[in-house]
Design a binder for these strands. Structure first.
Lengths: 109, 109
DNA sequence: AATAATGATCGTAATATTGCGATGTAATTA
DNA sequence: TAATTACATCGCAATATTACGATCATTATT
């Protein structure tokens, strides 16, 4: 017990859940917003701007990266992160589909 | 340590994160999909259809309810759940806004 | 080469999540 | 009223997440 039984769900359900999970933390939302804002990538800035330790930021970045939402390239001494356009589009599509599948027509409960 | 430092983030960031968190599990995605499918509410059916114990389903329903995504009303001996249209719309708007704020214009990393 | 700067990773403590059996509760049926 | 049905809640074990200090690796500067 204690671990998600992914095997009993569909690919789609697991994919959506994992994308949601990657964004299910205010720090990661903040990181994404910050990256989007200054379209051109950043990184060390994040440590200064969010009030979290460097190790913590790095960990959150890793999660976003392993979910595919962002990508990072080494740029001299620092690392430049930016949105992964492909995955972002996929997310937009799947999410739009999922959320849009509910047409609040008939009032029930 | 070990607990999310919500106080250092904005309302918006915390709200988005909590909505994502509510949906960050395949079982809860499955439950939402199932509720959406048969627009009219259900409940005990879920236990039969997803391969999880009744206690587990009940727990997931509670999380979805406390996030405001669904609502339940007692219907005789059983409980009828359905989407909370208001929160769903809010979710659609906020999410659309957030995802849409990225215009994959300039390629960077 | 020595030092500094930038991040990643490790180890650890605190807390949260997931899943389930067992039990409790309220309404329905016999 | 007793039994049944449909859920909720409790309590527990296994695992995951969050945060951070400390340390490691890599590149840049002196």
């Amino acid at each position: 017990m204690g671990l998600t039984r992914t095997e009993i769900f569909t690919e789609e359900q697991n994919l959506l859940a994992s994308l949601f999970k990657a964004m299910a933390h205010p720090a990661r939302i903040a990181i994404l917003q910050r990256i989007i804002l200054s379209n051109t990538c950043i990184c060390g800035d994040l440590v200064g701007e969010l009030g979290l330790a460097q190790a913590t930021i790095s960990q959150h970045l890793k999660e976003l990266k392993s979910a595919g939402l962002i990508q990072g390239t080494i740029e001299g001494v620092s690392v430049c992160y930016c949105i992964n356009p492909k995955v972002w589009k996929l997310l937009e599509n799947r999410l739009g589909e999922f959320l849009g599948s509910y047409k609040g027509t008939t009032e029930c409960c």
